[in-house]
Amino acid sequence: ETWDLPLAWPAENYISVAAGTFAAKVDEATDGRVEITLHPGGALGFKGPEMLGAVRDGLVPIGDMLLNQQIGDEPLLGLTSLPYFISSFEELAEFEAYFRDQLSAIMEDNNQKLLYTIPWPQQQIWTKTEVTDLASLEGIKIRSYDRSSTDVFDSAGMTPVQLPWGEVIPSLAAGAIDAVATSSPSAVDGSFWEFLDYGYPTRQTWNLNAMTVNLDSWNELDEADQKAITEVAKTLQPDFWQAAQDEDARNMAIVEENGMTLAPISDELRAEMAKRAAPLRAAVLEELGDEATAVVEGFQSR
């Protein structure tokens, strides 16, 4: 079997690299019976929000998707975007373990098998001015990355601006926006130090990717190969989670080397931002329904 794997991320991105590692190990474990061909950089034209449907309908046999981009199809996949629900990378890992079975079930409902997950590094805000308290956030025009982050920054008194990534750098250079919310690899990609001075790990939401395979393609494999692939995914997943951490550390170092000031945000400020976002979180949960509330409450009382 040859499986075409579309990747929306550039070839050097650690998620693409991880997919490459996975492909190599699968090749090895199945004696070349399953060959995964990577198409990084969006080369197959898939952009992200349609990936769940694309794997479900067999447009591609295997796919890598950013889970919270799939909420148009499956609202529960947006749980990691719930504002201030998950506070640290460790807690994200715990949530993944807690939610794993349900995630597999959702994927199965969508005619696909979950192979592994791989997280994105923590979310940060990158600003021109120092951030100490809520007052220092007031009115900052910040590029937000999705609906949830938009609402969060709005509630903190900032002015979130929706811009495609391609417009961000020129807008930043010219001053149409004064801040960007994204993780450290993107900050390095965009050479943020050319325009911005501070980075704060606000961690308002988290992003998680999943690698899934279409069930029809999966069922064409014999049991031994299926088992071998599942085993490869299971073995590699911890490495991939570590890779995300390493990637963050590496990029934070680059950002710092280039003269940006990196600082944690104070517990008070984080608490205050979370408080401001609380009604928002409640509203999102209300919209997501009982099932989502059950997951959230279950996780919190774990």
Binding site: P49, G53, Q69, Q70, I71, G72, D73, D146, R147, T150, Q162
Partner: peptide
């Protein structure tokens, strides 16, 4: 038709039904 039956929305910044 797929968008109609699944009720899929844009899911990024607005809830526009596709």
């Amino acid at each position: 038709l797929g968008y109609l039956t699944s009720g899929r929305t844009a899911g990024t910044t607005t809830d526009t039904p596709l």
